[in-house]
C-alpha cells in the first residue's frame, strides 16, 4: 500500500471493502453480543438508578456514533471538495442515514431512560435539544442529496451544506447551553477524568462501544458499496446510450 489515496479508486475500494466486510461485521456482532449480554445480565444494578442504568450500554454508544457520523461526513466532504475523490463523497452520503438512525436511537433510549429518572419523557435540556437539532441537520442533508439529480453537483452542494452546517451545529450547541442549563448528567465517558464509572460497568461498556463502532463501520462500508454500484450502473447506462 503506497498511499491512502489509492482507495479513492472505486475498484480498489470495492475489492478491499469486500475483503474487510465479513471481518468487520463479525467483530461488530461479537463485541455487541459480549458487551450487551454482559452489560444487561451480569452487572449489578446502580445504587441510585437501579436497573434502568443498563440502557446506558445502548444510549451512550449510539449518541457517540451519532456525532462521529457527522464528523466523518465533514471529513469526507472536505476530501471531496479538496481532492474530488468520488468514493469520499459517496461515503459521506452513505454515512448520513446511519448517523440519523443512531441519533434517533440516542433520542429514543434517552426518552425511555429519562421517564423513570426525571419523571418526563422529554426535557428541553441542551444536550437533548442538540441531538434533536442534529437529527434535523441529518434530515436536511439527506433531503438535499435526494433533490439534486446530477451526482457531482449533489456531492458539491451537500459538502457545502455539511461544512456550513457543522459551524452552525457548534454555535447551536453553545447557544443551547446559554439558553437552558439542563438536567442531563455530565459526560459519563471522558478521557481526562480519572475514573468515571466503576470497572464492572466500564468493561462491558467498552465492548459495547467497540461493537457500535464496528457496526457503524460495517454499515457505512455496505452502503458505500451500494452507492458505488449505483454509480457504476449509471455509467454503464450512459455508456450504452452513447455507443
Amino acid at each position: 500500500m503506497s498511499s491512502l489515496w489509492e482507495y479513492a479508486n472505486p475498484r480498489k475500494f470495492m475489492t478491499t471493502s469486500a475483503a474487510l466486510l465479513p471481518w468487520v461485521s463479525g467483530i461488530a456482532a461479537l463485541c455487541l453480543g459480549v458487551g450487551l449480554v454482559w452489560g444487561f445480565f451480569f452487572t449489578p444494578d446502580d445504587f441510585r438508578m437501579g436497573s434502568t442504568v443498563k440502557i446506558f450500554y445502548v444510549h451512550v454508544p449510539s449518541a457517540i456514533m451519532a456525532v462521529n457520523a457527522w464528523v466523518m461526513m465533514l471529513v469526507c466532504s472536505l476530501i471531496w471538495v479538496i481532492r474530488r475523490h468520488h468514493v469520499s463523497a459517496l461515503a459521506a452520503k452513505a454515512a448520513a442515514p446511519v448517523g440519523m438512525v443512531f441519533t434517533a436511537i440516542a433520542l429514543f433510549t434517552g426518552a425511555i431512560w429519562g421517564q423513570p429518572m426525571w419523571g418526563t419523557w422529554w426535557e428541553w435540556d441542551p444536550r437533548l435539544t442538540a441531538f434533536l437539532i442534529l437529527f434535523l441537520f441529518y434530515l436536511g442533508y439527506m433531503a438535499l442529496w435526494e433533490a439534486i439529480e446530477n451526482p457531482d453537483s449533489a456531492a458539491d452542494l451537500t459538502s457545502v451544506l455539511c461544512l456550513v452546517g457543522s459551524v452552525f451545529a457548534v454555535i447551536s450547541r453553545y447557544a443551547l447551553v446559554f439558553w437552558n442549563q439542563g438536567l442531563h448528567q455530565g459526560a459519563t465517558l471522558s478521557l481526562d477524568a480519572e475514573q468515571n464509572i466503576a470497572d464492572e460497568f466500564w468493561y462491558p461498556a467498552l465492548f459495547s462501544l467497540a461493537g457500535f463502532g464496528f457496526l457503524f463501520l460495517a454499515l457505512v462500508l455496505y452502503r458505500t458499496q451500494t452507492e458505488i454500484r449505483a454509480r457504476r450502473l449509471k455509467a454503464l447506462i450512459a455508456q450504452e446510450r452513447m455507443a
Binding site: 479508486n9 472505486p10 470495492m14 454509480r231 457504476r232 449509471k234 455509467a235 452513447m242
Partner: peptide
C-alpha cells in the same frame, strides 16, 4: 460528439468489479 465516457471517469473503468 462524445462516443464514450471520459477516461478519467472512475466509474467507467473497464476492469471494474
Amino acid at each position: 460528439v462524445a462516443k464514450s465516457l471520459p477516461s478519467e471517469d472512475p466509474f467507467s473503468d473497464e476492469a471494474f468489479a
